[in-house]
């Protein structure tokens, strides 16, 4: 059972306090978008073996959504960060690169 640190309230929250929200950094496609972009947005999700960025809500705690970078195999958590950002922070990317040489953000 995972434990993730909520970047808003600082609690190291166990999974039973959290609600999962799927892949992070999806770009919303509005009605102006192309059918292909809409299809990508609605239906296509990354399912990597390894580094993954995902959304979690501290549902039973402060109620805030946050983002986490996690290895889906080893469960290593590289970091959690606030959701008000459209790309993972550079510092986190550097951390992941150090831990997973050869890994590149998609």
């Amino acid at each position: 059972m995972l434990i993730l640190t909520c970047p808003y309230c600082g609690v190291r929250a166990e999974e039973t306090e959290l609600a999962p929200g799927g892949e992070a950094h999806l770009k919303r496609v509005d009605p102006e978008g192309s059918p292909e972009a809409l299809e990508e947005y609605l239906f296509h999700r990354a399912n990597p073996k390894g580094v993954h960025f995902e959304r979690w809500r501290h549902a039973y705690g402060c109620g805030k959504w946050f983002l986490a970078a996690r290895d889906t195999v080893s469960m290593e958590v590289f970091g959690t960060y606030p959701a008000q950002i459209s790309e993972p922070p550079q510092e986190l990317i550097d951390t992941i690169r150090a831990r997973r040489p050869g890994w590149e953000p998609v």
Binding site: A19, G21, R55, R57, K64
Partner: peptide
């Protein structure tokens, strides 16, 4: 309520 907070916090912050 969770849906509203989701969009407010993660898309239209």
């Amino acid at each position: 309520h969770g849906h509203m907070e989701d969009w407010l916090q993660t898309e239209w912050w």
